[in-house]
Design a protein around this nucleic acid. Structure first.
Lengths: 155, 155
DNA sequence: ATATATTATATCGTGCACGATATAGTTGTG
DNA sequence: CACAACTATATCGTGCACGATATAATATAT
């Protein structure tokens, strides 16, 4: 007998009974898996997420990237400056509305996309999981995200 | 025509077709939701995760917390020092094996558990989602996590 | 036209995450 | 016993995340 825990842990507070923890852990592990592939290309995982938005939407404002990634400018501004220093994007104030910073892809930024194209499938091969599970997971998260957003926005 | 994107984005690189992004976003949003409840108690979300492990397993070694949370000592050591400074835990070298740091809960650390008990259900109320979806999500992540761990451990 | 509010971005401070490396203690082997 | 291999924890450096706050530009309302 360890002298301490004859007391029972309420089930709400057991790590295994919580949804939040596996989500947190899985997210970190996936980030690490991506990092293995992204590191050689000089990208971090959040930078990769931002580049995906830019490959879809550039030229666009910081605000667009913010809305899409759900990251604020206190995260994005320094991240975008690093992408600029790496020569992947350019940042210029919009001459019409001087509040807006417009993000453009450079040639290097555009061509980086080709090198990233193989990454998702390479990771799928590495993580052996039922394809069905992954599809279902995506659908569930797709439904959960709006609920989470709503939960955050109410006061 | 915007002059740029007549080119087609390969579907693997569209944010919406990826599993990784919603996982990353959902994890961050849940962290923020928890933070709203945890802040008043003086805890961060990762600290709360660690405390949950300790409520289950203390007294135990740092290694135990590491195995359970999948966090390394470069994250845990400073986090545990902060918990110690807040008077929630104590850290002492094991006299039998001096490499091991044993973590004990203080009275304050133990009683904090009662204050955290209501948090998970409070958040469930705030995030309006099908109970079924959440259960399914947990099961899917439970299957995915071992696959991710395996993917990370192979070279 | 002039306050006033709103918007877009930036800055600051704190605390994760994590790769890389270090260090001290322990165990195993010849 | 010596010495290599292993283990548990710590340290360092970089880059997120994010709450709080600041600032400048634009829009709105008197």
């Amino acid at each position: 007998m360890s002298g301490v825990a004859t007391e029972v842990i309420p089930p709400q507070l057991q790590l295994d009974s919580q949804l939040c923890f596996p989500l947190y852990a899985a997210s970190r592990m996936i980030t690490r898996l991506y990092q293995d592939k992204l590191g050689p290309l000089g990208l971090t995982y959040p930078q990769y997420i931002v580049m995906m938005v830019l490959w879809e939407s550039a030229p666009c404002a910081v605000k667009t990237v913010s809305a899409r990634t759900l990251l604020n400018t206190n995260t994005l501004t320094p991240l975008l400056k690093r992408l600029e220093q790496q020569g992947l994007i350019s940042r210029q104030r919009d001459s019409v509305d001087e509040r807006v910073v417009v993000l453009h892809l450079t040639d290097a930024g555009r061509s980086l996309r080709d090198e990233c194209e193989c990454i998702p499938s390479a990771l799928l091969n590495k993580v052996v999981a039922e394809e069905d599970d992954l599809l279902q997971l995506k659908q569930l998260l797709g439904r959960l995200l709006p609920a989470l957003k709503a939960g955050l926005e109410e006061d």
